Computed example of a mutant assay.
Amino acid sequence: MDDIATVLDDVAILSKVAAKKTAGVLGDDLALNAEQVSGVKADRELPVVWAVAKGSFLNKLILVPSALVISFFAPWMVMYLLIIGGLYLCFEGVEKLLHKFIVSKQEDEQAHAEKLKALADPSINLADIEKDKIKGAIRTDFVLSAEIIVIILGTVAAEPFTTQITVLSLMSIIFTIGVYGFVALIVKIDDLGLYLLRKSVSGSFDKLQRFTGRALLRFAPILMKTLAVVGTAAMFLVGGGIIAHGVPFLHHFVEHSVDVVSVFPTVGTIAGSLTGIALNGVIGIAAGLLTLVTLTTARKIKGALVN
C-alpha cells in the first residue's frame, strides 16, 4: 500500500508539472478547435465537436504508445523532438502574427464574405463541408496532441516506465475531455444567449434574463478573440521555453539573467520570473522568424531547381 501511495503521489505531482508546461499548447488547441468547429449549423455544432473529440482520442491512441516506445528504446530522442515541437510552435505563432500585420482587415472580410456566399450556394453539399471541417480539426489536433505528449514525456522521461505510462495515459484522457468539453461550451455560448433573449418571462427576472442573454452574445466573440491572442502568445512562451531549455547556451543565458535580476530586494522574485518569461518569448519569436525564413528560402530554392 505504501508503494502504491508513493506511485500515486508521484503521478499527481508529475501531472501538475506536465499540466503547467502544456498550458500554452492547450490554450492554442482550445482556440484552434473552437475556431474550426464554428461556422457549421447550430444544431450540428455538438455532433461535430463529438466527432472531432473521437478523432482526438484516436490520435492519442496512436501517439501515446509511439511516445512510450521512443522513451524506452531511444530516450535521447525526446529532447530533439521537444526542440522540433518548440520550433513548430514558434513558427506557427510567427505565421499568425504576420497574417495580422500583412493581411488587411478588408481582405479578411472579403474572404469571410466569399465563404458565406459559397455556403449559401444550393449546389454545395453542406455535409461534405462538415466532413472537411472535421478532418481538418482532427489533423490540427494530431499535431498539437503530439506536441503535448512530447512535452509530458519530457517531464517524466527520468521516471520509471510504469509512471510514464500512467501519467501519459491519464493526462491524455483528461486533456481531451477538458479541451473538447470547453470547445462544446464555447460554441454554444451564443446559442444560450439567444435562448435567454427569446424566452419570455414576467417580472424582474425577465430583465435579468435578457441582460444575461445580451451579455453572453457580446461575450462570445470577445472570448474567441482572447483565446486566439492568449494562444498565440503562449506559442512563443512555451516554444521559446522548450528551445531555451534544450539549447545549453540559451539555457545558461536565461538562468544567468534571471539570477542577476532576482538579487534586487522586495521585487527580485517577481522581476526574475518576468525576466525569464520575457526572454522565453523573445527566443520564441526569434526562433519562429528564423524557421520561417529557412523554410521560405528552402521552398524558393526547390522551386528554382524544379523550374
Rank of each mutant, 00 (worst) to 15 (best):
G86T: 03
L126A: 12
V11E: 03
L82R: 06
V17R: 10
G281P: 02
A286D: 03
V40F: 14
L216D: 05
L119R: 12
S56M: 12
S202L: 12
R218H: 03
V187D: 11
D43I: 08
L30G: 07
K54E: 04
L185P: 07
G276A: 07
A304G: 14
S200P: 03
G284T: 04
V247R: 00
G55E: 06
V143S: 05
V261W: 04
L58G: 08
A234F: 05
G246Y: 06
H112R: 12
S15R: 10
I222S: 11
V69Q: 12
V258H: 11
L87S: 01
V187I: 14
D190P: 07
V11L: 05
N33E: 14
S204M: 06
A271E: 02
Q209R: 13
C90S: 00
I174A: 15
G55Y: 07
T291R: 03
G268L: 01
A271C: 05
L295M: 02
M1T: 12
D190N: 13
H112Y: 14
L295D: 00
V229Q: 12
V229W: 15
G55R: 09
A113T: 05
G276E: 06
P75S: 15
L14H: 13
G246F: 04
E147K: 09
M77S: 15
A244L: 01
L63A: 14
V48D: 13
G55L: 08
S202P: 05
A120M: 15
A127P: 03
S104D: 11
I129G: 05
A19M: 11
I243C: 00
S257F: 01
V25K: 05
V201L: 09
L46S: 09
F249E: 04
G24V: 04
G39L: 06
V103E: 07
F236P: 01
G241V: 02
G239V: 01
A18S: 13
S172F: 04
A244H: 01
I189V: 15
D191W: 08
I177A: 08
G288K: 00
A18W: 09
L61H: 06
T163C: 11
H251P: 03
L126Y: 10
L216Y: 03
V94H: 01
